[in-house]
């Protein structure tokens, strides 16, 4: 027998929370109602009714069994059912909120990436426009790295000849950005350094020669690039 609650006598406090599972409560309700029908049926049989009539009479006296079962269930589990519904609703709201934030974050990241690609592409175009050259036909021009950005499409094995028009730039130091023609003696005139022999050398060799020649003039090691423009 269940012990009485400490405060039960005051008639104010309810009994302690029900620790039974929902299945246990449902089972007990069904068992209790079924016992009533069985006892009434037995009493009817004892009073002379045949078993079928006795059961029908018991059910008629009892009323709608399913409706009564639901009423009992509401009384016993009403608070728990409401709490469960509140929990389910709260969980639904949380799932929707998390989903919304995830989608929002994804869209924002995608937009930021697209903006960076557009910006990089614009810088690429500006750089090549300043250098007066056609931009490289990279598959993803917006995603080129800096070394790729400044790389020339011209093969580095191109041999410089007398009469070639050369564009000479130093990408590590501002100030050197000239276009000079190779003289008949195979030399080109560059600021500060003077005449430098270039005819018969490849672009790579000329770039290395000029980078070394300019090294004493700058704090940062020069990175001279040469391109035959004419």
């Amino acid at each position: 027998m269940r012990p009485a609650s400490l405060f039960e006598g005051l008639g104010v406090f309810r009994a302690a929370p029900d620790a039974r599972s929902v299945d246990d409560v449902d089972g007990e309700i069904r068992e209790e109602l079924e016992l009533h029908l069985a006892l009434r049926t037995e009493a009817n049989i004892a009073a002379g009714m045949d078993p079928d009539a006795a059961r029908r009479d018991a059910e008629a006296r009892f009323g709608d069994v399913e409706k009564i079962r639901r009423s009992c269930r509401r009384v016993q589990l009403g608070e728990r059912i409401m709490l469960q519904r509140a929990k389910t609703a709260l969980l639904g709201v949380l799932v929707i909120a998390v989903g919304f934030l995830a989608v929002d974050s994804y869209l924002m990241r995608r937009e930021t990436t697209a903006s960076m690609v557009r910006m990089s592409s614009a810088m690429n175009e500006m750089t090549w426009a300043l250098r007066g050259e056609e931009p490289p036909a990279f598959e993803a021009r917006g995603l080129v790295t800096l070394p790729e950005l400044f790389a020339s499409r011209q093969p580095r094995e191109v041999v410089i000849r007398v009469g070639d028009q050369l564009k000479i730039q130093d990408f590590n130091n501002v100030g050197l950005d000239i276009t000079e023609r190779v003289a008949r003696d195979g030399m080109v005139l560059v600021p500060d350094v003077g005449w430098v022999p270039v005819a018969g050398l490849t672009r790579a060799e000329v770039e290395k020669t000029l980078s070394e020649a300019y090294a004493p003039f700058y704090a940062s090691p020069p990175d001279v690039k040469v391109k035959v423009v004419e």
Binding site: S5, G11, E28, V65, C72, V75
Partner: peptide, 25 residues
């Protein structure tokens, strides 16, 4: 009405007016 007794019993138990226990009839 015999069935209507049971919701009333459960309600009164929740109010603390009666208490229940399982036994043998």
């Amino acid at each position: 009405e015999e069935g209507s007794l049971y919701p009333a019993l459960h309600r009164m138990e929740r109010r603390g007016w009666i208490r229940s226990s399982w036994g043998l009839s």
